[in-house]
Amino acid sequence: MAGCAQSHMRLILSRMRREPDLRGYAVTHPSGPLIPPQAAGWHQLIYAVSGVLVVDTAEGRWTLPRHRALWVPAGVAHRLRVVHRSALRILYAGERARLLPAGCRVLDVPPLLRELVVHLVEHAPMSLDEPRHARLVAVLQDLLVELPADAALLLPAPVDTRAMAATELVTDLDVAAVCRRVGVGRRTLERLFLAETGMSIGQWRRRRRMLDAVAHLAGGLPVADVALRVGYTTPSAFSAAFRTELGMSPSRWQPS
C-alpha cells in the first residue's frame, strides 16, 4: 500500500512540475505593431476574433481578417501588426499538443472552431494529463487537420536585396521606373521575382493590392472606396480583378 501511495505521489509531483500543453493569450489592441508573449519551443495559432492582423515571416506577409487564423510552428520568427482594432486570441501549443505539421498556413475559422479557440484561450493553461483537457485538444486537432490552407492570403517575400527594394516601389510606380530606381534591368528583376516568389512582378503587385483590399474591406470600408485606395478607377474593374485573384467577391470579406 505504501508503495502505491508513493507512486501516486510521484505522479502528482511530476504533473505539477510539467509545463502545461496549452497556454492562452487574449488582448484587444488598436492599430499598430503588436508584440505578444514569445516563448521558445511553443507553436502558435494566431486568431483575431474581430479586426484585421498582418503577420510577417521570412516566407512573406500573411493577411488575417476575422475569419482566418495563422498556424506558426515553433522557431518561426514573426512580427504582428494590427491593421484595424482587433480582439486577438493566441493558443500556444507545446510539443505534446502539436496540432498541425510543419510550415505556416492560413486556415478558415468556421463558427465551431471559433468558439472552441475562444473557450480554450479563456480556460488555459491546459494539460493533456487531464482527461477533460485532452478531449478538448483532440477536438481542436480534428477540426484543424480537416481545414484546407488558404495560400492566396500570403504575399511571398523575395530575398534578393534588389527585389526587396522593388517591393517597396512597385505598387506606386510602373515597372520601368522601379528598375531605374533599383538599378537593375527589367529582365533581371522579372527573373528574380519569378525565382523567389513564384510570381511575375505584375502578379506580385496585383496580389499586394488585393491583400491590402482585404484588410480595408474587413475593416468595414465600402467596396467603391477600397477600389480607389488600391488603384482601380471603377468598382466593377476592381471587383473583377479581386474575384480573379481571390476567388470570391469583395463583399464576402466585409463584416457581417
Score class of each variant (00 low, 15 high):
Ser86Thr: 14
Gln44Arg: 15
Glu146Cys: 04
Leu192Tyr: 07
Leu221Phe: 01
Ile12Phe: 06
Ala218Glu: 12
Thr188Lys: 02
Ala163Thr: 04
Val139Gln: 12
Pro110Arg: 00
Val175Asn: 03
Val159Glu: 12
Leu107Ala: 00
His133Met: 11
Ala93Phe: 06
Gln6Ala: 15
Gly219Val: 11
Val121Met: 04
Gly60Val: 01
Gln38Ile: 13
Ala87Asp: 14
Val52Thr: 15
Ala134Asp: 11
Ala97His: 02
Thr188His: 08
Ser31Thr: 13
Pro235Trp: 04
Val170Glu: 09
Ala149Cys: 10
Leu120Asp: 07
Thr234His: 09
Arg61Leu: 12
Arg180Lys: 05
Leu189Pro: 08
Asp225Glu: 15
Thr161Phe: 05
His78Gly: 14
Met164Glu: 15
Gly32Cys: 02
Ser256Glu: 15
Ala218Met: 14
Thr233Leu: 07
Pro37Met: 12
Gly185Tyr: 07
Leu136Ala: 12
Asp108Val: 00
Arg17Lys: 12
Arg132His: 11
Trp62Gln: 03
Tyr92Glu: 07
Leu107Thr: 01
Val145Thr: 12
Arg243Thr: 14
Pro156Asp: 05
Gly94His: 02
Glu146Phe: 01
Leu211Glu: 13
Pro148Arg: 04
Ser127Glu: 13
Val223Asn: 05
Gln254Ile: 09
Asp225Phe: 00
Pro33Tyr: 00
Val52Trp: 05
His43Leu: 04
Thr244Lys: 08
Pro158His: 00
Ala163Gly: 13
Leu116Thr: 11
Ile90Pro: 08
Phe238Gly: 00
Arg191Ser: 12
Val54Asp: 11
Thr28Asn: 05
Leu112Val: 13
Pro36Ile: 14
Pro250Asn: 06
Leu116Ala: 12
Ala134Val: 06
His78Thr: 11
Ser50Ala: 14
Arg186Gly: 13
Ala97Pro: 09
Ala58Asp: 14
Leu120Ala: 04
Gly198Asp: 13
Thr233His: 01
Arg132Glu: 14
Ala5Asp: 13
Pro235Ala: 08
Gly60Glu: 02
Val83Thr: 14
Leu246Ala: 06
Pro255Asn: 13
His216Asp: 10
Leu147Ala: 08
Thr167Ile: 10
Glu19Asp: 14
Val52Asp: 08
Val170Gly: 02
Thr171Cys: 10
Met199Asp: 09
Val175Tyr: 01
Val49Trp: 01
Ala69Asn: 04
